[in-house]
């Protein structure tokens, strides 16, 4: 698909309750960022920058429950829908990771191209 949405392949590539990663690089190979794409057990898909707002833990490796992922490093709970940290702690409040707009169409996953390329849209709270 051309245009605003980038086709990243069929939904079957990510098992429910799992996440997979998508590194985004410049032409010279340096990493812009890595995106984590999640498939929840109630069959929704979400994409976030794969960097916990706490200390940059790889969210893709956390346990997914509901539409929340628990970061593997220090167990912050991050909303897959908004990228916000859900805890009440002083550090957690207001912390959030950029989300990448995603849509599923005819069994394929699409990400918003501009966000993938690094112009990540700020999440709900920051907006």
């Amino acid at each position: 698909m051309i245009g605003d949405w980038l086709d990243i392949g069929p939904v079957g590539q990510i098992a429910p309750g799992n996440a997979r990663t998508l590194p985004v690089r410049r032409g010279d190979g340096t990493l812009i960022h890595e995106i984590a794409i999640f498939h929840t057990s109630d069959n929704r898909f979400h994409a976030l920058v794969n960097r916990c707002p706490h200390k940059a833990g790889p969210l893709s490796q956390g346990i997914v429950h509901g539409s929340v992922v628990t970061c593997p490093l220090h167990s912050w709970n991050i909303s897959l829908k908004t990228g916000e940290a859900l805890g009440e702690g002083a550090e957690e409040r207001g912390a959030c990771v950029p989300i990448i707009p995603l849509k599923v169409d005819a069994g394929r996953i699409y990400l918003l191209r501009s966000a993938v390329m690094g112009g990540a849209t700020p999440s709900a709270r920051a907006a």
Binding site: L6, I8, I14, N18, T21, L22, P23, V116, M117
Partner: peptide
């Protein structure tokens, strides 16, 4: 294997 592999890789050029 899917736990170890990236889904894909994006490079904006060309």
């Amino acid at each position: 294997a899917q736990l170890h592999q990236h889904l894909a890789e994006v490079r904006p050029f060309p």
